[in-house]
Amino acid sequence: MSQRVLDILSTRFEGAILQTHGQFGDDTAIVDPAQWKAIAQFLRDDSRLAMDHFIDLTAVHYPDREEGRFEVVLHLRSFDKAHRIRLKARLDLQDDGHVHIDTLADVWAGANWFERECFDMFGVVFEGHPDLRRILMYEEFEGYPLRKDYPADRIQPLVPFREEAQGKLPPFDRHEGMPFGRQTHDHRPGGRNLLGFEREDA
Protein backbone atom coordinates (compact mmCIF):
# COMPACT_ATOMS: atom_id res chain seq x y z
CA MET A 1 0.00 0.00 0.00
CA SER A 2 1.21 3.46 -0.66
CA GLN A 3 0.59 6.92 0.70
CA ARG A 4 2.15 8.41 -2.42
CA VAL A 5 -0.69 7.12 -4.59
CA LEU A 6 -3.17 8.85 -2.32
CA ASP A 7 -1.25 12.13 -2.61
CA ILE A 8 -1.22 12.02 -6.38
CA LEU A 9 -4.91 11.14 -6.45
CA SER A 10 -5.85 13.96 -4.10
CA THR A 11 -4.05 16.53 -6.23
CA ARG A 12 -5.54 15.31 -9.48
CA PHE A 13 -9.12 14.76 -8.30
CA GLU A 14 -9.42 17.37 -5.61
CA GLY A 15 -13.15 17.33 -5.02
CA ALA A 16 -13.76 13.68 -5.76
CA ILE A 17 -11.60 12.18 -3.02
CA LEU A 18 -13.96 12.43 -0.09
CA GLN A 19 -11.78 10.85 2.56
CA THR A 20 -8.53 8.92 2.89
CA HIS A 21 -7.18 6.73 5.64
CA GLY A 22 -4.48 4.17 6.23
CA GLN A 23 -5.84 1.53 8.56
CA PHE A 24 -3.64 -1.47 9.39
CA GLY A 25 -1.21 -0.38 6.71
CA ASP A 26 -3.77 -0.41 3.89
CA ASP A 27 -4.18 2.96 2.21
CA THR A 28 -7.74 3.69 1.26
CA ALA A 29 -9.46 6.45 -0.66
CA ILE A 30 -13.20 6.97 -0.49
CA VAL A 31 -14.19 8.52 -3.77
CA ASP A 32 -17.17 10.18 -5.37
CA PRO A 33 -19.16 7.45 -7.19
CA ALA A 34 -19.71 9.78 -10.15
CA GLN A 35 -15.94 9.89 -10.72
CA TRP A 36 -15.47 6.15 -10.16
CA LYS A 37 -14.54 5.28 -13.70
CA ALA A 38 -12.47 8.39 -14.36
CA ILE A 39 -10.38 7.72 -11.28
CA ALA A 40 -9.94 4.08 -12.24
CA GLN A 41 -8.83 5.05 -15.71
CA PHE A 42 -6.37 7.57 -14.29
CA LEU A 43 -4.94 5.02 -11.86
CA ARG A 44 -4.28 2.62 -14.68
CA ASP A 45 -2.91 5.06 -17.25
CA ASP A 46 -0.83 7.50 -15.20
CA SER A 47 2.80 6.49 -15.50
CA ARG A 48 3.59 7.36 -11.88
CA LEU A 49 0.87 5.01 -10.66
CA ALA A 50 0.52 2.32 -13.35
CA MET A 51 -2.05 0.30 -11.42
CA ASP A 52 -2.42 -2.30 -14.12
CA HIS A 53 -2.91 -5.34 -11.90
CA PHE A 54 -6.55 -5.86 -11.07
CA ILE A 55 -6.89 -7.60 -7.72
CA ASP A 56 -10.36 -7.58 -6.26
CA LEU A 57 -13.75 -5.96 -6.40
CA THR A 58 -16.49 -6.53 -3.87
CA ALA A 59 -19.10 -4.72 -1.81
CA VAL A 60 -20.10 -4.41 1.83
CA HIS A 61 -23.58 -3.64 3.12
CA TYR A 62 -23.97 -1.32 6.13
CA PRO A 63 -27.73 -1.11 6.75
CA ASP A 64 -27.32 0.86 9.98
CA ARG A 65 -25.85 3.90 8.30
CA GLU A 66 -27.85 6.98 7.50
CA GLU A 67 -26.50 7.17 3.97
CA GLY A 68 -23.89 5.39 1.91
CA ARG A 69 -25.20 2.01 2.96
CA PHE A 70 -23.40 0.16 0.22
CA GLU A 71 -19.68 0.32 -0.22
CA VAL A 72 -18.14 -0.94 -3.44
CA VAL A 73 -14.56 -1.86 -2.63
CA LEU A 74 -11.83 -2.12 -5.24
CA HIS A 75 -8.29 -3.37 -4.65
CA LEU A 76 -5.57 -2.58 -7.13
CA ARG A 77 -1.90 -3.17 -7.48
CA SER A 78 0.82 -1.88 -9.74
CA PHE A 79 2.79 -4.67 -11.30
CA ASP A 80 6.02 -2.75 -11.83
CA LYS A 81 5.91 -0.47 -8.82
CA ALA A 82 4.39 -3.04 -6.45
CA HIS A 83 2.22 -0.55 -4.60
CA ARG A 84 -1.38 -1.17 -3.72
CA ILE A 85 -4.44 0.89 -3.02
CA ARG A 86 -8.04 0.39 -2.01
CA LEU A 87 -10.78 2.50 -3.52
CA LYS A 88 -14.24 2.71 -2.04
CA ALA A 89 -17.42 4.32 -3.26
CA ARG A 90 -20.40 4.82 -0.97
CA LEU A 91 -23.79 4.39 -2.58
CA ASP A 92 -27.43 4.02 -1.72
CA LEU A 93 -30.31 1.97 -3.04
CA GLN A 94 -32.25 3.51 -5.87
CA ASP A 95 -36.00 3.14 -6.34
CA ASP A 96 -35.56 -0.03 -8.39
CA GLY A 97 -33.98 -1.81 -5.44
CA HIS A 98 -30.50 -1.73 -6.93
CA VAL A 99 -27.34 0.25 -6.47
CA HIS A 100 -25.89 1.81 -9.60
CA ILE A 101 -22.27 2.50 -10.46
CA ASP A 102 -20.16 2.56 -13.61
CA THR A 103 -18.54 -0.62 -14.82
CA LEU A 104 -14.78 -1.07 -14.89
CA ALA A 105 -14.87 -4.08 -17.20
CA ASP A 106 -13.45 -2.01 -20.05
CA VAL A 107 -10.64 -0.67 -17.87
CA TRP A 108 -9.48 -4.03 -16.56
CA ALA A 109 -10.76 -7.17 -18.26
CA GLY A 110 -10.62 -8.90 -14.91
CA ALA A 111 -13.38 -6.75 -13.47
CA ASN A 112 -15.92 -8.59 -15.59
CA TRP A 113 -16.62 -11.59 -13.38
CA PHE A 114 -15.97 -9.76 -10.14
CA GLU A 115 -18.68 -7.25 -11.07
CA ARG A 116 -21.03 -10.04 -12.02
CA GLU A 117 -20.43 -11.63 -8.64
CA CYS A 118 -21.00 -8.32 -6.90
CA PHE A 119 -24.27 -7.89 -8.78
CA ASP A 120 -25.26 -11.43 -7.91
CA MET A 121 -24.55 -11.09 -4.22
CA PHE A 122 -25.45 -7.45 -3.52
CA GLY A 123 -27.57 -6.24 -6.41
CA VAL A 124 -25.06 -3.63 -7.48
CA VAL A 125 -25.77 -2.79 -11.12
CA PHE A 126 -22.66 -1.89 -13.07
CA GLU A 127 -23.77 0.47 -15.81
CA GLY A 128 -22.33 -0.50 -19.17
CA HIS A 129 -21.23 -4.00 -18.16
CA PRO A 130 -21.19 -6.24 -21.25
CA ASP A 131 -22.80 -9.28 -19.66
CA LEU A 132 -24.37 -8.59 -16.28
CA ARG A 133 -25.92 -11.94 -15.39
CA ARG A 134 -25.96 -13.81 -12.13
CA ILE A 135 -22.82 -15.89 -11.86
CA LEU A 136 -22.89 -18.01 -8.70
CA MET A 137 -26.66 -18.17 -8.24
CA TYR A 138 -29.22 -19.23 -10.81
CA GLU A 139 -31.31 -16.90 -12.88
CA GLU A 140 -34.53 -17.26 -10.86
CA PHE A 141 -32.89 -16.65 -7.47
CA GLU A 142 -34.82 -14.06 -5.49
CA GLY A 143 -32.97 -11.41 -3.52
CA TYR A 144 -29.30 -10.74 -2.98
CA PRO A 145 -27.83 -13.14 -0.45
CA LEU A 146 -24.93 -11.16 0.97
CA ARG A 147 -27.00 -8.14 1.91
CA LYS A 148 -27.44 -7.96 5.64
CA ASP A 149 -31.22 -7.96 5.33
CA TYR A 150 -31.22 -11.32 3.56
CA PRO A 151 -31.82 -13.96 6.25
CA ALA A 152 -29.29 -16.76 6.07
CA ASP A 153 -31.99 -19.41 6.51
CA ARG A 154 -34.38 -18.06 3.91
CA ILE A 155 -35.78 -20.77 1.65
CA GLN A 156 -36.03 -20.02 -2.03
CA PRO A 157 -39.09 -21.01 -4.08
CA LEU A 158 -38.93 -24.00 -6.37
CA VAL A 159 -38.01 -23.19 -9.93
CA PRO A 160 -40.40 -24.57 -12.56
CA PHE A 161 -39.14 -26.15 -15.75
CA ARG A 162 -38.09 -23.51 -18.18
CA GLU A 163 -40.14 -23.23 -21.33
CA GLU A 164 -37.22 -22.03 -23.40
CA ALA A 165 -33.72 -23.22 -22.75
CA GLN A 166 -31.88 -19.90 -22.77
CA GLY A 167 -28.22 -20.66 -22.87
CA LYS A 168 -29.21 -24.09 -21.54
CA LEU A 169 -29.50 -23.53 -17.84
CA PRO A 170 -31.00 -26.13 -15.53
CA PRO A 171 -33.52 -27.48 -14.74
CA PHE A 172 -34.05 -29.20 -18.03
CA ASP A 173 -37.20 -30.43 -19.57
CA ARG A 174 -37.87 -34.10 -18.89
CA HIS A 175 -36.99 -35.01 -22.44
CA GLU A 176 -33.51 -33.62 -22.19
CA GLY A 177 -30.44 -35.52 -21.16
CA MET A 178 -30.20 -39.21 -20.40
CA PRO A 179 -33.22 -41.00 -19.01
CA PHE A 180 -32.84 -42.56 -15.61
CA GLY A 181 -33.36 -46.21 -14.96
CA ARG A 182 -32.98 -49.24 -17.17
CA GLN A 183 -33.56 -49.10 -20.90
CA THR A 184 -36.23 -51.19 -22.50
CA HIS A 185 -35.92 -52.48 -25.99
CA ASP A 186 -39.36 -53.89 -26.40
CA HIS A 187 -41.57 -52.64 -29.13
CA ARG A 188 -44.77 -52.46 -27.19
CA PRO A 189 -46.77 -49.26 -27.51
CA GLY A 190 -45.40 -46.59 -25.21
CA GLY A 191 -41.90 -47.95 -25.41
CA ARG A 192 -39.11 -45.45 -25.30
CA ASN A 193 -36.07 -45.12 -27.43
CA LEU A 194 -32.56 -44.55 -26.14
CA LEU A 195 -33.06 -40.84 -25.63
CA GLY A 196 -36.19 -41.32 -23.59
CA PHE A 197 -38.56 -40.08 -26.25
CA GLU A 198 -41.69 -42.05 -26.83
CA ARG A 199 -41.40 -44.17 -29.94
CA GLU A 200 -43.08 -42.60 -32.87
CA ASP A 201 -44.20 -45.94 -34.29
CA ALA A 202 -45.95 -46.80 -31.03
Binding site: D52, H53, F54, D56, W108, A109, G110, F114
Partner: peptide, 9 residues
Protein backbone atom coordinates in the same frame (compact mmCIF):
# COMPACT_ATOMS: atom_id res chain seq x y z
CA UNK B 1 1.54 -11.15 -20.09
CA UNK B 2 -0.49 -7.92 -20.38
CA UNK B 3 -3.78 -9.77 -20.62
CA UNK B 4 -2.93 -11.90 -17.63
CA UNK B 5 -2.16 -8.87 -15.49
CA UNK B 6 -5.32 -7.02 -16.52
CA UNK B 7 -7.36 -10.14 -15.85
CA UNK B 8 -6.11 -10.22 -12.31
CA UNK B 9 -4.20 -13.44 -12.70
Amino acid sequence: REDAIALGW
